[in-house]
Structure formats: structure tokens, C-alpha cells
Design a protein around this nucleic acid. Sequence first.
DNA 1: GACGATTTAATCGTGCACGATTTACTTAGG
DNA 2: CCTAAGTAAATCGTGCACGATTAAATCGTC
Lengths: 170, 170
Amino acid sequence: MRSTACDQIAHDLYLMAKEKPMKPDSATEAPGLPDHLICFAAYSVSHAFNQVYRSLLDEIGLTYPQYLVMLLLWRGDGRTVKEIGQAMHLESNTLTPMLKRLEAIGLVERSRDTTDERVVRVKLTQAGAEKQKAAEHIPACVARATGLQPEDLTELVQTLGDLRARLTKA
Amino acid sequence: MRSTACDQIAHDLYLMAKEKPMKPDSATEAPGLPDHLICFAAYSVSHAFNQVYRSLLDEIGLTYPQYLVMLLLWRGDGRTVKEIGQAMHLESNTLTPMLKRLEAIGLVERSRDTTDERVVRVKLTQAGAEKQKAAEHIPACVARATGLQPEDLTELVQTLGDLRARLTKA
DNA sequence: GACGATTTAATCGTGCACGATTTACTTAGG
DNA sequence: CCTAAGTAAATCGTGCACGATTAAATCGTC
């Protein structure tokens, strides 16, 4: 169901990228401008990851960004909104509503820092801390879904990290 | 400004991925579970591409998804909503409002197919067709921003395409 | 031809992303 | 002190993503 649509993406955008610099229906090899392709590949892979995560996270009642926040808090409790934002590349305009939703479902508590009333610290509740067990299986499931060996994953991560660094610098 | 936050992401999530399977502060090499990393790397690269495109597309008044629709229409006019959805991996719940916005700014027209009243065909207006010129420089800018040679881009696209295929199959 | 199944868009509600602005608090300089 | 600058969250508005549902048109089969 999804895979057909996904294949279609790649096909269509592959054509799109190739078509620009050369004749519409000749030379099926030697792509000329893979830049549309690469950007869409990243976009598409990101969506595919979201799908995998979505199906896993539905069971424990979290969205993917919420899961990332919980991962951070499980590593270290009581972070400020700004710290979470730095780690996730998000700002308060996105985080505040998200953290309020996590608070509404009883996983975290938000409270003003007593020594600096500007900052809000986010702490895990009992339920939030216990949620970690329910999420423990997820990384292995995702790793399995990629179908990559650990060393290949590591290499790809390195490549993407370098690419991101160049993109954000530009 | 953005790059520091971005570096922070990679740092934090790199730690996060490594920390799980091994002691918190030993063995800085040999990451054990790069699965969080890879998913976040895709997410992060996708965002970075969005940033690059956003700055370029702001000048011509399009968002990135809108630009993808226009790319499709420049390749071939009069597509149905379903065809666009297959190419972009989106459905009418996302596309209908988006196409209405493109219609509102005068770049496309939507009309029911006369032979099958279920389908809506999307056609470029004069202004929509002319917009292509204003967007012509974008691919080269993006390609330059990646800092990759064409063959490296092509290889990465292949890798990501394979990864996406495995993810959507799982 | 009538009717159920299928197909195509549209609609609705929720959540994330993000630019721009606002508010409350803290800190530095006069 | 007290104001100006700076900082941390929150708020607001727009747009995308997506599950679920609805509405209308078409098709298949009897």
C-alpha cells in the first residue's frame, strides 16, 4: 500500500531530476542534476522513519518528537526548555505546547526554576520514568527495520552528519 | 546561530545512542546502537534541506512542498490530485488545502475532469508557468550547498533510496 | 436499470515546525 | 537605585502531515 506510492516518488523525482539537463526520453543513465533527488531522498527517508516510529510509538501513546524529548529526559531529568530545544533543534514556540501535552498525559511536570524565574525545568513524573521500560524495545526494532549492519549504519550516519553540517553552514 | 544548535543535536543524540548499551562515560569509540542516530540524522538532514530551500523559496513565495508540486506541474501539466499525491507520497487531506493555496496565489487552476467528475485536474496558469524561470537557479544553489560532487550525491541518493525501500517494507 | 462496492476529493481534528511578537525576569551600566 | 539591554518562555498565525470520516461519482454484477 505505502510502498507503491513510495516507489512512485522515487521514480517520478528521479525522472524529474534527470529530465532538466538533458533530452526528456533519452539516456536513461548518467543523472545530470541529482540535487532534487538528494533533497527528496532525505525528505522521503525522514518520512519513512517517521512511519516506522509512528507504528511503534502508537502503542505507547507518544509521537516521535515527544519520544525524542522523553529520550532526553530519561538520560537526564530536570532540563530546561532551552536545553531541550538545543538538543532537538527546536525553540519554545514548538516545545511549549509539546511539553504541555506531555504534562497533560502525566509524563512530565513543568516548573519555574526558583533561582531564575525565567527558566522552566521539565521533570519526569513517576509515570514518565516508568514509561522508559515500555519504550526499551523500540531502538532494536528500528535498527532491524533499516536492514543495515551496525557498521553500515555508522558510516551512513557519518555521511549524513557531514552533509547536514555543510548544509547548515551554507 | 543555527549551526551551533545543530551541532548540539548531533552531539547530544550521539551520546544518547552510545550511552544505552555501554557505560556512560567510557569508550568514546565503537558506537553500539546507532539506530537513534540514523533516524535523527535523517530527520536532521531533512530539516537542514528545508532550511536551505526555505531561504531560496521565500524569494519566489513558495513553500517547499508547494515547490515540489510546481516541479511536477512544470514537467507535466493537468495532473490529477491523485497523481500528484502518488508522486509526492501525500493524500488529498494534505494536498487539497495546499492546492487551494496555490490557486489562491494564482499559480494553478483546479477543475473537475469532464469525463470523470470524481477527479480534479490541476493546471498551471500563465503566472504558474512563468514562475519556472524564477525557480531555475534553485537546483544549482542546493547542489552547491551540499558541497558534494555529483557522483557522491548520486551514491548517497542510491543509499537513501535503498534505506527508504527497506523501511517502508518493514 | 438498480444496487453494492470501489474510487476520488474534500473535510475534520490533532500535532509539529517556524517566523514574529510579547511578557516576565535578570543583569549591566550610569 | 534605576533604567537599558539581554534572556527565557509563551503566544499567535500560517502551513504541512496524517488518521479518520464523509460525499459524490463510477463501475460491476445481477
